[in-house]
Design a protein around this nucleic acid. Sequence first.
DNA 1: TTAAACTTTCAATATATTTTGAAAGTTTAA
DNA 2: TTAAACTTTCAAAATATATTGAAAGTTTAA
Lengths: 168, 168
Amino acid sequence: MELAEAKKKFIETWGKLGSEWGINRTMAQVHALLLISPEALTTEEIMETLSISRGNANMTLRDLMGWGLIEKQHKAGERKEYFYADKDTWNIARQVAKERRKRELDPVLKALDELTKVEGDVNDPEYKTFNKSVTDINKLAKNVDRTLDTMLKAEESWFWGSIFKIFK
Amino acid sequence: MELAEAKKKFIETWGKLGSEWGINRTMAQVHALLLISPEALTTEEIMETLSISRGNANMTLRDLMGWGLIEKQHKAGERKEYFYADKDTWNIARQVAKERRKRELDPVLKALDELTKVEGDVNDPEYKTFNKSVTDINKLAKNVDRTLDTMLKAEESWFWGSIFKIFK
DNA sequence: TTAAACTTTCAATATATTTTGAAAGTTTAA
DNA sequence: TTAAACTTTCAAAATATATTGAAAGTTTAA
């Protein structure tokens, strides 16, 4: 396979994976493009390479910055803004986990906590089943949350740190 | 909060979480409904409770069965099919992980493996960056894959088994 | 067989999400 | 200042995804 072809395929693959994970395709593709670029790129270059509009490129780049996956770079003597991606996969995984935790897990935990507090008749099967499922799911969600928290601070924990080092 | 209200809220919350995780809202809602139902429900009952059409209900129920999250139940002397959900959260998490791995991770791993094999000039920064990123991501993806595999077989591994027991 | 009781299918429709692009806004150098 | 170089915004359009519901298909009991 040619390098050029391989690049296209990588961008496509990353885009598909992203869209399956609730990250929009373009965002994942821009990220992929920056991941394999040795140099920071301008909005123009990104627009051109991926055939997307200026507006789309701008929004996507801002989103990616919001996710902490890319950063702006200013080149001396130039007005244009350049963008580059953090290439450390471990950081990428951490950032994504961190953002999704904040955006998705936290609100769910809050809702579940309220729902476990709902009171009812212990002899009512409707109530019993409801309560058991909600409590169990809440327990699982809390554990996931706690693990993510530990993972995000992995550097500080010898235990998880040594486990996660395997992944690097 | 009333039980009835709490049920609605649970279905809504689960639906939202599902849609953020690439599982469609209705599918997650039907699953939520069955999770909190002490008895197996018919298609009719599900349609009515969630205000969805027969077609939608049918497709969703089949999808859920495909994911291994619900099962059909036949009641003696009745023609109708009843559906009920596995209420063990650990099983739910395992099933979801298993399905997503098969559907999403496996194809990506295959694509990445090919891309790491692409050859090029080691002095070309374009090639070097491409190769490094793809190789790193491939490594991470393989580790995730291996971990999921272990997790799905957790019962057999004293090491992971004892770690994951914490989650139950 | 037959017909009632169900389940499944799928083209049409509705809804949600993403993208565009032109206009407005901002910054900088002269 | 001013105007060129750039960035941002957002309503409208395009695209993608989910849902409907009526018709077709299947199963079962008599």
